[in-house]
């Protein structure tokens, strides 16, 4: 996945539980049909033999399970960093626009966002690993990846939060200030809680985007889900089954999460309003 200049958090097609099951079975069937020459007896036997080789023999499916754990660990870590960094960046930018005079901080935040959104995440990951942490070889590479993905995500999350904050009626800030609250207290107790609620679905979408984005972690030697598929390929010299399985696992997770976002949106829109 290379540089995305636009805001990436778009909504994914929602899916119900039935759709997910259907998607999984369907995708796998289509693949099995094609791979097995439409169930000719010989091809089907071959398909099963290779399936055994790829996933069952020597518990090779555990490679995928461990890879999945790594993928989820990096995604979760990067999301946490992304949300914290994004929150700080967005508050700096909004505060500057809102009359607090912090031109240096604001310029730094703007530059951060421009650079991190304007260069491919892949390149950033390589720079973190091979340049900035080049001499820190005893550091777990997964932490470098979490940092790289998290800081990259922060630039996108900043724009999500900024939109969320700016969607709150300016009267809310005025009312808080009129009671003698400082700008920061007003932000903390009045503006951010409301803004946060508005952006929760978009933050989940960011999480989904990150889940897929961590698939480039293999380039710095992390055995994530994608890399685990490639590792199986290397063992079995099998060209397609492992990667198709990897794709299906990503797809299921994304569909499950999208489903969750959809429910969340429905729940939030039923909730309290101004």
């Amino acid at each position: 996945m290379s540089g995305r200049m636009t805001m990436r958090s778009k909504s994914y097609p929602g899916a119900g539980r039935g759709d997910i099951l259907l998607g999984f079975v369907g995708a796998f069937l289509v693949y099995a049909l094609w791979e097995s020459g439409f169930f000719t007896a010989d091809a089907w036997a071959d398909f099963n033999r290779r399936f055994y080789q790829n996933f069952v023999k020597d518990d090779r499916y555990m490679m995928l399970v461990d890879g999945l754990k790594s993928t989820l660990f990096m995604t979760a870590g990067a999301t946490v960093i992304g949300v914290i960094v994004g929150l700080i960046l967005s508050v700096i930018r909004v505060a500057h626009k809102g009359g607090l005079h912090i031109p240096v901080l604001n310029k730094l935040a703007e530059t951060y966002i421009t650079v991190l959104r304007g260069t491919p995440a892949m390149v950033q990951l390589l720079i973190w690993n091979f340049t900035i942490f080049a001499s820190a070889r005893d550091l777990n590479t997964q932490y470098i990846a979490i940092l790289a993905f998290g800081l990259n995500s922060g630039a996108y999350v900043a724009e999500i939060f900024r939109g969320g904050i700016e969607s709150i009626d300016p009267g809310q800030m005025e009312a808080a200030r009129s009671l003698g609250l400082t700008y920061w207290s007003s932000m903390k107790f009045v503006i951010l809680p409301q803004a946060l609620r508005n952006v929760v679905p978009m933050l989940f979408n960011e999480f989904i985007a990150l889940l897929k984005e961590t698939s480039i972690a293999g380039y710095i030697g992390i055995d994530d889900l994608t890399r685990a598929g490639q590792n199986i390929q290397a063992l079995t010299l099998e060209h397609s089954q492992p990667l198709v399985m990897v794709a299906i696992i990503y797809l299921i997770m994304v569909m499950l999460l999208s489903n969750l976002v959809k429910r969340l949106e429905q729940w939030l829109s039923r909730g309290r309003r101004g």
């Binding site: 009626d169 809310q172 009312a175 009129s178 409301q194 609620r197 309290r272």
Partner: peptide
Amino acid sequence: KMGMVFQHFYLFPH
């Protein structure tokens, strides 16, 4: 020490 009441109330909805 100066309370203000607005046309659109601006209660904190959360």
